[in-house]
Design a protein around this nucleic acid. Structure first.
Length: 951
RNA sequence: GCCGGUGUGGUGGAAUUGGUAGACACGUUGGAUUCAAAAUCCAAUGCAAGCAAUUGCGUGGGGGUUCGAGUCCCCCCACCGGUACCA
């Protein structure tokens, strides 16, 4: 029988659905294993060949784990809220709910074609009210909790209220932005609004005025990672800083635990490094400087308190609240001018013109806490309001930026660290000996930092403090297609709704455009916003990270209406054992998920501290972008030049025009070109070039017809470049097309055979024939020359057992290591070997087929059935290997002289080292090299090699 | 700048963790089969010299450790990713 993948795949796709083969139970005596893929955002473009890479890897692993006796949870769902669906709605009028569900249907079909073992009965969609009910509920919990530093965990706000009523802030030890102390009496005397405002400094979900990245074109606030070089990642629109009242999550409260947790999880070092950098922990001190003639103090943060004797001036961030209070009359105008200037500068300008120093003197002076000298207070753009305290002591001698600033404005520089022993050291190296520094003189920098820390605390000038770069996560978006907030306002004070009032459903509307005043489209639906008794709803929605921060928990118990997941389900599945996804989520998604997880852990809902035990970043499959080269003729007309002919037009300016890859012959190879027919398709696609001239090799085409040469010989060479696979470059390869041509099994094997899973690589189909050949060769082992199934029940030979057991061992080990390309190569070796031996024995082919089944679920299932099996191969047990079959009778040794291989000798496996040494020395080929020299040493490494050292 | 990673034939990539560099596959060349093609099968294929046996060179570059280095150490280069007036 011929290998007819179309029929086989259609048959089993249907059969597996009917038999519910991949349905997973929460009750099983087997050990659990949870394999998770990062769920996709269902975009209109559908899947391209890059998406399934990680899914195939995790699917192979899931199947392998099942065959090894685990109860494997391997679910899939959709991250269905987000900007693109809304942008699409604005452009076309198609409601996001519709386009999203259409896209999901398309994705599911594409995924089914590839033969994944997802349990679709557990599918989740973040835009589904039964799902976001719980997203809203978790948000309400965040609102109702604060971070207690005594327990180092989240605690209910009610406990904080008790403390405040009992003794004010005195006994509160919380992670907070509140820095004023309040007595119990004061607290009780507070109005409702005042109380609310104080509590906002404690809550894990709170509202504050913050500087946000406002994108006017998109009409929404963007997170830092949605911005590239000052422009929005989507659409490339300008982004500016704007003060807005927004919801925030107090992720900074968990900074230390997020950092600590990294130690116990198995993630790549680069991913951990990215998160570490993002959290950005640094140890230093906060210090107070009195302002001369004012009742104010300036608080600064520094990691180099040791250099304080070199502090010759101070700098405040332009937004710093003290600026208005301390500026002198004389400088009032120049300060105002400077602040105006700063406000007009966009985020982008601030980023690109980093090297330019700007600033202005406030006219005020601070008192140096050690020398009591008066030092000037300046304002400078280079000091950021939201890092540290928004103010610095400037030490021009040991900080490059301070030095540049001091030089430009002629401020004093005092050297305080003698670095003459370390000429190449930078300030960051913290090397050298203290000078001009009173009681620190003679100390090494690191000692001085320690000493200064204690000194500052003893004198009551400040505190040793840990600081983090990480900021609280902005959690408001002024968009329609997201989760509404589960709260109502009364007199401007929000309160969260109870669980029985959830979900707050997203109301239907056909008006998606953001309003010009920065409010969400929801604000237009007044009968939804305005509630009885003067209450209003929040009209912002949550960002896309909300739904994806906990979806992996919902899969454990997706239909539960009483809880986000039952305690039993959570206790059984615990956490994700293996998470596979792209590194583009290295910060946002993975950090917020860890934050939510830790929070829910604190509340006792979860049994584990970390959500994802092991994580693998699959590489990106890049596309090849094909360009035609365009230049202008003498009269300004369009002339395309074949890439190999560019040399003939040395003086012309050449532009690259991307060509849809479906018109390109030999796509992806160096010799890719457009044929005569390709040109016809191209000008049909790009009408504006229909009159253009195409100077190809073997002929010229103008206005679509041949001027010279022949249709057959005509070639326009294209320029190929590796880049993103994207609609924009017209180079998206749809997996459906590959599956249709080669079958899903070959597609799966090929993506895995391409190279290590973590590596990025351009898509090319050059090697796919080899993999396709492998599948057919394996298939042919089961059939005789007349294409009839013919299997033997004879005992396998020693040789057959050897290759089989070697392969079982290698494939098992490689899957454990996620080295799928080498697992496939060892199966290829096995099939080639068995083909040579003309093996058709059941005892060999049956275990081989099980190895193969994780990679190629369709063909293996079909052959399995043909072998007379009644249950699925995907429920079979992974074979075990026995070393005894793998032992060699004889071993081939390379014989080296001074480390260079000179010959090969074969010895029986039981030959002693001495016997081998003697034989090697007696070998003719070796004697040529040892003749006339002294043999100093002979090294025999059993089963490896023999090295003879001569001189 | 800082942090992380990568660098091996014409190409994708292997290398038991210090022990035969280039497995497996693509491509190329030659051959078989065929009226012919596709498919299939066989052989060769790191580079250089040589008819050949063989010899020399060879894992980004330079140095080192070792009987032996793609693998370990030091210095440098290139590329990719992250991040940045972070005090």
């Amino acid at each position: 029988m011929k290998y007819d993948f179309n029929t086989i795949e259609a048959k089993w796709k249907k059969s597996w659905v009917e038999s519910k083969l991949y349905k997973v139970s929460n009750e099983s005596p087997k050990p659990k294993y949870y394999v998770l893929d990062m769920f996709p955002y269902p975009s209109g473009a559908g899947l391209h060949v890059g998406h399934p890479l990680g899914y195939i890897a995790s699917d192979i692993y899931s199947r392998y784990k099942r065959q090894n006796g685990y109860n494997v949870l391997h679910p899939m769902g959709f991250d269905a809220f987000g900007l693109p669906a809304e942008e699409y709605a604005i452009a076309t009028g198609v409601h996001p709910a519709k386009s999203t569900s259409d896209n999901i249907a398309k994705y599911k079909e594409q995924l089914a074609n590839i033969g994944f073992s997802f349990d679709w009965s557990r599918e989740v969609r973040t835009s589904d009210p039964s799902y976001y009910k719980w997203t809203q509920w978790i948000f309400s919990l965040l609102f109702e909790h604060y971070f207690d530093l005594n327990t180092n965990a989240a605690q209910p706000i009610s406990e904080l209220l008790d403390l405040l009523a009992d003794s004010g802030t005195a006994k509160v030890n919380a992670f907070t932005t509140n820095n004023k102390s309040v007595s119990a009496d004061e607290w009780k005397a507070y109005s409702e609004k005042e109380q609310f405002e104080l509590l906002a400094h404690y809550r894990l979900a709170y509202r504050k005025v913050g500087y946000v990245n406002w994108c006017a074109a998109l009409g929404t606030v963007l997170a830092n990672d949605q911005i590239k070089d000052g422009f929005s990642e989507r659409g490339g629109h300008p982004v500016e800083r704007k003060a807005m009242t927004q919801w925030y999550l107090r992720t900074t409260a968990y900074a230390e635990r997020l950092l600590e947790g990294l130690k116990e999880i198995d993630w790549s070092s680069s991913l951990k490094a990215i998160q570490q950098n993002w959290i950005g922990k640094s140890k230093g001190a906060t210090l107070f400087f009195d302002v001369d003639g004012h009742d104010e103090k300036v608080e600064i943060f520094t990691t180099r308190a040791d250099t304080i004797f070199g502090a010759t001036y101070m700098v405040l961030a332009p937004e710093h609240p003290l600026v208005q209070k301390i500026k002198s009359q004389n400088e009032s105008k120049s300060v105002a001018d400077y602040l105006n200037y700063v406000n007009t500068r966009s985020e982008r300008e601030r980023m690109t013109e980093v090297k330019e120093v700007t600033g202005v003197f406030t006219g005020a002076y601070a008192i140096h806490p050690f020398t009591q000298k008066r030092i000037p207070i300046w304002i400078g753009e280079y000091v950021l309001m939201d890092y540290g305290t928004g103010a610095i002591m400037a030490v021009p001698s040991d900080d490059d930026r301070d030095r540049a600033f001091a030089t430009k404005f002629g401020l004093e520089i005092i050297e305080v660290v003698d670095k003459s022993d370390y000429p190449d050291a930078t300030a960051a190296d913290k090397l050298g000996v203290m000078i001009n520094s009173d009681f620190l003189n003679g100390l090494k920098v690191k000692e001085a930092i320690e000493k200064m820390g204690t000194e500052v605390e003893n004198r009551g000038l400040g505190k040793v403090k840990i600081n983090y770069k990480m900021r609280d996560a902005g959690f408001s978006r002024q968009r329609y297609w997201g989760e509404p907030f589960p709260l109502v306002y009364k007199d401007g004070i929000p309160s969260v709704l109870n669980l029985d009032e959830l979900p707050v459903e997203l109301p239907h509307t056909e008006e998606f455009k953001p309003t010009s005043d920065g409010k969400s489209p929801l604000s237009r639906i007044s009968d939804w916003v305005e509630l009885s008794e003067g209450q209003q709803r929040e009209t912002d929605t949550m960002p896309a990270v909300a739904g994806s921060s906990w979806y992996f928990l919902r899969y454990m118990d997706p239909k539960n209406d009483m809880a986000f997941a039952s305690k039993e389900a959570l206790d059984y599945w615990q956490d994700v054992d293996l998470y596979v996804g792209g590194s583009e989520h290295a910060v946002a998604h993975l950090l917020y998920s860890r934050f939510w997880h830790k929070f829910l852990f604190d509340l006792g809902y979860l049994p584990t501290k970390e959500p994802f035990k092991k994580l693998i970043n699959q590489g990106m499959i890049q596309g090849v972008i094909e360009y035609l080269l365009l230049t202008k003729g003498d009269n300004g007309e369009n002339v395309f030049i074949s890439a190999d002919k560019v040399g003939e037009f040395p003086d012309r300016e050449v532009a690259k025009i991307p060509v849809h890859i479906k018109y390109v012959s030999d796509y992806g190879s160096d010799s890719s070109y457009l044929s005569y027919e390709g040109i016809q398709s191209f000008i049909g696609w790009r009408q504006s070039y229909s009159k253009a001239e195409f100077v190809g090799s073997g002929g010229t085409v103008k206005s679509g017809s041949l001027l010279s040469g022949s249709k057959e010989g005509f070639k326009m060479q294209t320029v190929s470049e590796v880049g993103k696979m994207s609609k924009r470059y017209h180079n998206v390869v749809n997996p459906d097309d590959v599956v249709a041509k080669y079958g899903a099994d070959t597609f799966r094997l090929y993506e895995m055979f391409l190279g290590p899973i973590e590596q990025s690589k351009p898509w090319d189909t050059q090697g796919i024939e080899g993999v396709s050949k492998f599948v057919r060769r394996l298939w042919s082992l089961f059939f005789n020359d007349d294409e009839q199934l013919e299997l033997s029940t004879a005992e396998p030979t020693k040789e057959e057992l050897k290759i089989l057991h070697q392969t079982i061992k290698k494939v098992g080990n490689d899957i454990e290591k996620f080295s799928f390309n080498t697992a496939i190569s060892s199966m290829m070796i096995c099939v080639n070997e068995l083909k040579k031996l003309k093996t058709n024995k059941v005892a060999v082919l049956e275990p081989l087929l099980i190895l193969f089944s994780s990679f190629a679920p369709f063909a293996s299932e079909e052959l399995w059935e043909m072998m007379g099996k009644t249950s699925s191969i995907h429920e079979a047990t992974f074979p075990s290997f026995d070393e005894k079959h793998m032992q060699e009778d004889t071993i081939e040794y390379p014989i080296c002289v001074n480390g260079k291989k000179r010959t090969l000798m074969t010895f029986p496996a039981d030959t002693t080292n001495q016997q081998m040494e003697d034989a090697a020395l007696a070998n003719e080929d070796i004697q040529k090299w040892t003749e006339g020299k002294n043999v100093l040493k002979v090294i025999v490494v059993t089963k490896r090699m023999i090295n003879i050292v001569v001189k």
